[in-house]
Amino acid sequence: MGQARALMGLSAQLDEELDFREGDVITIIGVPEPGWFEGELEGRRGIFPEGFVELLGPL
């Protein structure tokens, strides 16, 4: 779908969440519900709030 750069780090609180560090580039693979993305980073998949990232182009 597209890519996004992390504006800040996120520590996953639930198993389905993706954790990442500020500056990581995450591949967006879905939008499971409004306000959330599903992404992949370094072979890991999970969901995260859209406010933690900036899109690097259209989805």
Rank of each mutant, 00 (worst) to 15 (best):
E50A: 15
Q3E: 10
D19H: 12
L56Q: 10
G39I: 01
M8T: 14
E40R: 10
E40M: 11
P34T: 13
A6W: 07
F20H: 03
G9D: 15
G57P: 10
I47K: 14
R44P: 00
I47S: 07
L56H: 05
F52W: 07
G23H: 04
L10N: 15
L14S: 15
D24N: 05
A12D: 05
W36S: 07
F37Q: 00
R21D: 12
P32T: 08
L7A: 00
R45H: 09
Q13P: 11
D19A: 14
I28N: 02
R21H: 10
L10G: 08
E50C: 12
T27R: 10
D15A: 12
W36Q: 10
F48T: 05
M1C: 09
R44W: 00
E40W: 02
V31Y: 08
Q13Y: 07
L18P: 00
D19R: 09
L55I: 10
D24K: 00
F37H: 00
Q13A: 12
E54W: 09
Q13F: 07
A12G: 13
G30N: 01
L55H: 07
R44M: 00
L59M: 13
G2Y: 06
I28F: 03
P32F: 04
G35A: 03
A6Y: 00
T27P: 02
I26Y: 03
G9I: 00
E17H: 15
G2H: 01
E22N: 06
P58K: 08
G9C: 13
R5M: 11
G57C: 12
R21Q: 13
Q13M: 11
F37D: 03
M1S: 06
G2K: 06
A12V: 06
Q13K: 14
Q13L: 11
G9Q: 14
G43H: 04
Q13W: 06
D24F: 07
V25I: 14
R21F: 06
E42A: 12
V53S: 02
V53F: 03
P49G: 05
P32W: 03
E22R: 12
E16L: 09
G43E: 10
F52I: 10
D15Q: 14
I26F: 01
R45N: 07
G2D: 07
D19C: 13
T27S: 12
G35H: 04
R44T: 06
G46I: 03
V31F: 08
G57D: 09
E16Q: 12
P49V: 00
D19G: 13
P58V: 08
F52K: 12
G9K: 10
F37I: 07
I26H: 05
L10S: 15
L14Q: 15
E17R: 12
P58W: 05
D15V: 09
V25D: 04
W36L: 13
G35K: 09
A6H: 00
P49M: 08
G43Y: 04
E38K: 12
V31T: 13
G51K: 15
I47P: 04
A12N: 13
R45K: 09
R5N: 03
E17M: 14
S11A: 12
G46T: 00
V31G: 05
E16D: 13
V53M: 01
P34A: 12
V25P: 05
L55Y: 08
P49A: 03
M8V: 14
R45D: 03
L59Y: 01
P34M: 07
E50F: 10
R45F: 06
G51V: 12
G30C: 02
G39Q: 00
R21V: 14
G57S: 13
I28H: 05
Q13D: 12
M8K: 15
E42P: 01
G2T: 14
F52D: 00
G30H: 03
R45T: 13
L14G: 15
D15H: 09
V53C: 06
M8Y: 13
F48E: 04
R21N: 15
I47F: 11
S11Y: 13
D15R: 11
L55F: 07
P49S: 04
P32N: 00
R44H: 07
M1A: 06
W36M: 14
D24C: 07
P34I: 05
E54A: 07
G46V: 03
E42G: 12
G23W: 01
G23S: 05
S11R: 08
E50K: 13
Q3P: 04
E40S: 10
L41V: 12
E54R: 08
G23D: 07
I28T: 05
T27F: 01
A6S: 04
Q13I: 09
P58Y: 02
S11H: 11
E40Q: 10
E50D: 11
G23N: 10
L14C: 15
R45M: 00
L59E: 11
G43D: 07
R45I: 09
D15T: 09
R44Y: 01
F52H: 15
A12R: 14
E17F: 11
E42I: 01
E38T: 12
E22M: 10
W36V: 12
V25L: 14
I29A: 08
V25R: 09
F48R: 00
